[in-house]
Computed example of a mutant assay.
Amino acid sequence: MFRKKRKAAGEEPAWEVISCSQDDIRQAVNAFARQADQRISLRSLIRQDNSLDPELLAPHLGGIPDRPFYMSKETFEVAEEQELVKMLDYAQIAVDQYFLETGNYPTMDGARSGKVSYFKLQHYLKEKPPMDLYLDPGDRMVTHRKPAEM
């Protein structure tokens, strides 16, 4: 899995294409973050279309992923679907704007899960996301994964 093929002497290494899971990508992103200079943002891994730059992750994966992975520029959540990370970006921006204006988080009243209230965000979102979103209790970032009940 961690094999590197070399081109002719003096050229950049040519990484082998490897099969990766979403968890492998998360671990590689975390390794990149630990080794990167503090002045380098994780956003440097993310291309304009929200895909992760495979060349930057290759040293941490031992190769180039065989398919694209995407990352939210706002929440840094990794996914295999581009639309999911774009939706998370839009929702996080809406949540942040709501919080700045009201001082409250736009969660459902009485919901201990941190479920986002689309009613409260109706003036901040262009369209309602097709799935339930939640605020992570630790960092207040939007996620599509339901946190464990408190």
Score class of each variant (00 low, 15 high):
V17D: 02
K128T: 12
K126Q: 08
D37L: 11
T107I: 13
I64N: 11
A79P: 00
E11W: 08
D49Y: 08
E11S: 15
R140F: 11
E83N: 09
A14E: 15
H60R: 05
G62S: 05
C20P: 04
T75G: 02
F69W: 12
L56T: 02
R112M: 07
Q122F: 05
Q22P: 00
E83P: 01
L100M: 15
E127A: 13
Q22A: 10
M1G: 14
R43Y: 10
K120W: 07
K126R: 03
V85M: 12
A14S: 08
Y98D: 12
N50C: 13
K86D: 14
I64T: 13
D139K: 07
D49R: 07
T102A: 10
P65V: 03
Q22V: 06
R39F: 15
K7W: 04
Q35E: 15
P54A: 00
L88D: 11
P130S: 01
M1Y: 05
P13E: 15
A111I: 04
A33K: 12
L133K: 10
I46P: 08
I40L: 09
D89I: 01
E127G: 06
P54W: 00
I40Y: 12
A9Q: 14
L61I: 06
F119D: 03
R6M: 13
D23N: 09
A36L: 05
D37M: 11
P147N: 04
R112C: 10
P59K: 03
F119S: 09
D96Q: 11
R145G: 00
E16I: 15
M141N: 13
Y124M: 09
S113N: 08
M108L: 07
Q22L: 14
T143F: 00
S51T: 13
M131E: 03
N50H: 14
S41D: 12
V116P: 11
I40V: 14
H123S: 12
S72M: 09
P129A: 06
I40H: 07
R34L: 11
K7L: 08
Y105S: 03
F2E: 13
K146D: 05
Y98Q: 12
P65F: 01
S72L: 10
L57I: 05
K73T: 15
D109V: 04
P65I: 03
N30D: 15
R3N: 11
K146C: 12
D132C: 06
R6G: 02
G62K: 06
I40G: 04
F32E: 05
R34W: 02
G103S: 11
I93W: 08
K73H: 12
R34V: 07
A36R: 15
P129Y: 07
M141T: 13
K128N: 10
D96I: 14
D66S: 15
P130Y: 00
V78F: 00
S41F: 13
D23Y: 10
G103L: 09
L52M: 03
F76P: 02
L135C: 12
P65A: 01
